[in-house]
């Protein structure tokens, strides 16, 4: 007797919970060869709105952790990612049609990148902050602070489906931002599996919210949303990203432009692009 296989229907990850799309929609995810892989939730603009609310709620707690503590939490995510390597390799092989060796290399790169960014948590302040030269008996310090809620359009398409996502999400949360990320529409499974890792790590719910579905449908709502502080358009090559940038200017958002690649190369500037500089004045003690 043959057995019916049980195909998984994935959900969205909003506010630390796995939820179906408010719209009730799902779409079929296929492998590179066109075989059925799974059903993924097709998020609507209202899911995006809910995700922004969840992210806004999470920012205070996440940003209030000490940088060292944030780093520890992110290291742990990398550990869990390493532990579930086999699942990611299988999804990458299926979704991208690459060899097992190439898939393994991509997971390696993703783990390494995550660890690299985790290390920046308690270091980027020293590098990006400064004690300004002054001409008087006081200090003048400039320090970067998280900007708040960041909407990310992860690299779309079926290449670097895990690495591309990690390369945009990790730098955004290093400083204490919360993220609403639109995963790759054609290869969302590594992104959705990553949420299962995030849910069981110590990352507070709502710091990373993952929406699967159409970037073209949701991006205009996110870039215009007044409660989003910055948008990362890395994966918006195929969209009218200049139009999105213009729309984002309506509420003076920070904008990171597309890279034209399947991933965002690791750089400190990706962290600092999503921060605000606070400059404070303080007297020197007069002893």
């Amino acid at each position: 007797m043959s057995r019916l296989s049980v195909a998984k229907t994935y959900k969205l990850y909003i506010g630390g919970a796995f939820v179906r799309s408010e719209s009730g929609r799902v779409y079929e995810v296929t492998t590179k060869k066109g075989a059925f892989a799974a059903n993924a939730a097709k998020a609507s603009r209202k899911d995006a709105r809910d995700a922004v609310v969840a992210a806004r709620t999470a920012t205070a707690k996440w940003a209030a952790l000490t940088p060292y503590n944030r780093g520890q939490v992110l290291y742990r995510v990398a550990e869990l990612l390493e532990g579930r390597r086999a699942q990611f390799v299988q999804e990458i092989v299926g979704g991208e049609g690459v060899s097992v060796a190439a898939a393994n290399a991509q997971v390696d790169a993703a783990v390494d990148l995550w660890v690299w960014y985790a290390g920046w948590c308690d270091k980027y302040l020293q590098v990006a902050g400064t004690a300004n030269p002054v001409a008087g008996p006081y200090f003048n310090l400039s320090v970067p602070e998280p900007t708040g809620v960041v909407a990310v359009i992860a690299p779309q398409g079926a290449a670097d489906s895990l690495l591309g996502l990690v390369s945009t999400v990790a730098p955004a949360i290093v400083s204490g931002n919360a993220v609403v990320v639109i995963a790759s529409e054609s290869a969302p499974l590594p992104a959705v599996s990553l949420t299962e890792i995030l849910a069981t790590s110590d990352l507070p719910g709502g710091v990373v919210n993952v929406l699967s579905g159409s970037a073209a449908e949701m991006a205009p709502w996110l870039v215009a949303h007044a409660d989003v502080n910055a948008v990362d358009l890395t994966g918006a090559d195929e969209l009218d990203w200049a139009g999105l940038e213009a729309e984002a200017a309506g509420t003076l958002k920070r904008v990171v432009r597309p890279t034209g690649r399947t991933l965002a190369p690791p750089a400190l500037s990706r962290i600092t692009a999503l921060t605000e500089t606070k400059t404070v004045w303080h007297t020197k003690a007069l002893i």
Binding site: V52, W221, A226
Partner: peptide, 9 residues
């Protein structure tokens, strides 16, 4: 306005 507003407003 046609876009989502925020508690800042």
């Amino acid at each position: 306005t046609g876009h989502y507003s925020a508690p800042d407003y």
